[in-house]
Structures are given as structure tokens and as C-alpha cells.
């Protein structure tokens, strides 16, 4: 059953009088409950745009997006969603526990529960020893980890992560990977965007490959490898993108 769904989701950016840039073009996506779904693509392929549309930060030019059958602006739906943005920036004048407490309050979590949850999460992301440190003194990796903790504060059913391992060292990457697998075991649905192929390969049940705003392929890794006669994810990634670029070049050539 699809818990996240997009129907012909399109986003065009208008630059100047006549120039239109395709952010996303008629994307149909279905993420099933309890799976880890990876969105792959080079920079500027529409991964973040897709996530922002799902979360109501951007508005679609056309098409629809649903999470748990609800539109992106639905407040009740957001109660069950956790989000980690790319390169997370937080209120740097707060400490880790203060940040988590602020977000917990917005979810309406009572103080006893939130206190317990904050302790658990700080332990989980190994920031319990720097409780009194303001976020402006955090390293990039620490910010990524507090961001992950913040995205879990409401014990969400759905976790949307935009490049969750950017800035993490190899051990941090491994820990995040293990955490994602553990969350999946707990029945969470995870939608993650990344351009780290090895990371996606290890954790995702299904993937989607985006390029220039188009959804080129979607399915299980094995299924896609067979379909595109690819040896591995890297090979698949390059093949789908090159095929698309060649098709576009032919179209452009025909047009001129």
C-alpha cells in the first residue's frame, strides 16, 4: 500500500519572461509502507524539489502529492512525519537539548515524554556528552547528527531524509545506515534522497532515478539491473542517465 504518492507531479520555475526551467516533470511515485525508498540522481536532478513538494515547502505547477492520503499542507499528517533537510541549519543560539525540546513542543509532546525522548535521541546520535554546547560550535557532522535526532523527535511513521550522510565521516555513515535499517525493522517508512550510490545500494528496498526533473526509472535494484542489463547500481545509474541524455539530444537535433 502506497503511503507516499505523487501523481503527475510537476514543478516549473519561471526565469525571466520566456525561460522555464523544469524542476520536476510529471512524476508518478509510490512509496510503500515499511520500505526504504531511495531517490537517486545527480545534482539538480529534482530530488530535493520532489521532497519539498511533498512537504508543502514548494507548491506544484500541476499534479498532486500525498502522504498518508493527505495533501502536503495537512497539519495532522505532519504529526507523523520526520524530515531532515540537506545541509541542516538550525538555531545556532540553542543547545542540542533545547533544539529538540522546541521541536517536541511543536509536536505537542508533553514535557516528561519529551525529556525522556531527548535523552534517548542524544544517546543514539552520540551527542549526550555535549549537552551544553551551543549549535554554533557544532561541526558539520554533529549538525547532521542533531538533525537526524530532530527528525526522530516525534517517533515518526514516515521519515524523509535529504542527503542524510553529507558531512558524516565513514563511521558516522555506517551508524546512520544501521539506524535506518533498525528503523525499518520498527516498521517505519523511509524516503531518502542521495547521490551516494553505495549507501543507497546497501539500505534501499526500491529506488527511483531522477535526472533533469524527470523520473527515469523506478523499481527494485535487481529488477532495474535486469531491465537495463546493468552490472551494479553505478552501471545502472550511468546507463539510465546517458540513455536519457542521448534521447534528448536526438529530440533536440530533430527539432532543429
Amino acid at each position: 500500500m502506497a503511503i507516499i504518492e505523487t501523481k503527475e507531479l510537476t514543478k516549473h520555475y519561471i526565469l525571466g519572461k520566456k525561460k522555464i526551467v523544469v524542476g520536476l516533470e510529471k512524476v508518478n511515485l509510490e512509496v510503500n509502507q515499511g520500505e526504504i525508498f531511495g531517490i537517486l540522481g545527480p545534482n539538480g536532478s529534482g530530488k530535493t524539489t520532489c521532497l519539498k513538494l511533498l512537504l508543502g515547502i514548494l507548491f506544484p505547477t500541476s499534479g498532486q502529492a500525498y502522504i498518508m492520503g493527505k495533501p502536503p499542507y495537512d497539519v495532522e499528517m505532519k504529526q507523523h512525519v520526520g524530515f531532515l533537510p540537506e545541509n541542516p541549519y538550525y538555531y545556532d543560539y540553542l543547545t542540542g537539548p533545547e533544539l529538540l525540546q522546541f521541536y517536541a513542543s511543536l509536536f505537542g509532546i508533553d514535557s516528561d515524554t519529551s525529556k525522556k525522548r531527548i535523552d534517548e535521541l542524544l544517546e543514539l546520535v552520540e551527542l549526550h556528552n555535549v549537552r551544553r554546547l551551543h549549535l554554533r560550535h557544532y561541526s558539520k557532522g554533529m549538525l547532521e547528527r542533531i538533525g537526524l535526532a530532530a527528525s526522530l523527535i516525534n517517533d515518526p511513521e514516515i521519515l524523509i531524509l535529504d542527503e542524510p550522510t553529507t558531512g558524516l565521516d565513514p563511521i558516522g555513515c555506517r551508524d546512520t545506515r544501521n539506524l535506518l535499517l533498525k528503523l525499518k525493522e520498527q516498521g517505519k517508512t523511509i524516503l531518502l534522497s542521495s547521490h551516494f550510490l553505495s549507501e543507497v545500494e546497501r539500505v534501499c528496498d526500491r529506488i527511483a532515478i531522477f535526472h533533469r526533473g524527470y523520473l527515469l526509472a523506478t523499481g527494485t535494484l535487481d529488477g532495474l539491473n535486469k531491465q537495463y542489463q546493468a552490472e551494479n547500481l553505478e552501471d545502472l545509474f550511468v546507463k539510465t542517465i546517458c540513455t536519457f541524455d542521448n534521447q534528448q539530444a536526438v529530440k533536440t537535433g530533430e527539432a532543429t
Binding site: 508543502g56 515547502i57 495532522e76 505532519k78 504529526q79 541549519y89 511543536l106 524523509i160
Partner: peptide, 14 residues
């Protein structure tokens, strides 16, 4: 500018 709004607007607030 600090992009803190991304995390804020994805919380259950209008």
C-alpha cells in the same frame, strides 16, 4: 536565509 524555516514548516504548524 538560515534555512531553519525548512524544518519549522515541516512540523505540524500552519
Amino acid at each position: 536565509e538560515r534555512r531553519t524555516i525548512y524544518t519549522l514548516l515541516t512540523k505540524p504548524i500552519r
